[in-house]
Amino acid sequence: MNSTRPDDGLVRVRGVAKHFGRKAAVSDCTFTLPEGSVTALVGPNGAGKSTLLSLVAGLVTPTRGEITVHGTPVRGRMHPDVSFLIQRRPLYDRITVREMMRAGGALNDRWSAERADEVLDLLAGVDRDAKVGALSAGARTQVSIALALGRMPKVLLLDEPLSDLDPLARDETLRIVMTDVAERGTTVLLSSHLLTDLGDVCDHLLLLDEGRVQLTGEVDGILADHRVLVGPVGTALPTEGAVVDVSHTSRQTTVLLRGGPEPEGWQAEHPDLVSLVMRYLRASRARRAPARERSRTGAPHPS
């Protein structure tokens, strides 16, 4: 049911760039999110993840490029089919949860109080008469998600939905989101640093670095396209395919290779999602501070 043909995306982003003053937060981003997919948006701090989510939500107008959801362009305001969970979880602190949900109804053209209630009732349940400002981080996230899902979105954008949560709340929060995906086929784009939590739920990956898309597509396909090579120090680097990252210990060299055939003289295996992303992040850091990184690892400047 999850078609990944590029033209079939529910969310299509074409050549999008956003500049704040002279600084480019996002440049030349092109990707699609297939209907019903769950995409992990990963990248180092400052990679432009939040800006990209704000662009897709319609909170920020792109400097260049076009974003469409369900074929209709997103520009300057919230798309009716999109819900956005902001990292800071802004809520009106001085009112009760019940009043907050009433506000959700008042602020939205399409609103399902039943859906919002369902989400609030999940897990331990959220006390409707509690002041929003007094809620725990987990309950606050649950209220934010209830507000987001009450809009009956087709696309759910989640910015760091799991930050500040204890392991149990993390697990439960993901469960709420995945229930919605399973029941309604909601398309999800979520940014997170917690790779281990994402591995189980995400079928697509969008890796962003310095505002540019490094990798996009199905997780399985991406993993199959990469190899982790382990060999003795001094082994010649493979000539075919792209070397993403090289790291050394005193005895052996580890290489992340994209594409190409399996090279001679290396032990090769396909990476898991966590190690793949880790190596991309490390390569990104090395690119940003090449001198310091080279002196630490003794590695050549990775391309």
Partner: peptide, 11 residues
């Protein structure tokens, strides 16, 4: 308080 973003993300 960041609550403008709350209003902006509704319809």
């Amino acid at each position: 308080q960041g609550t403008h973003a709350l209003a902006f993300t509704q319809s």
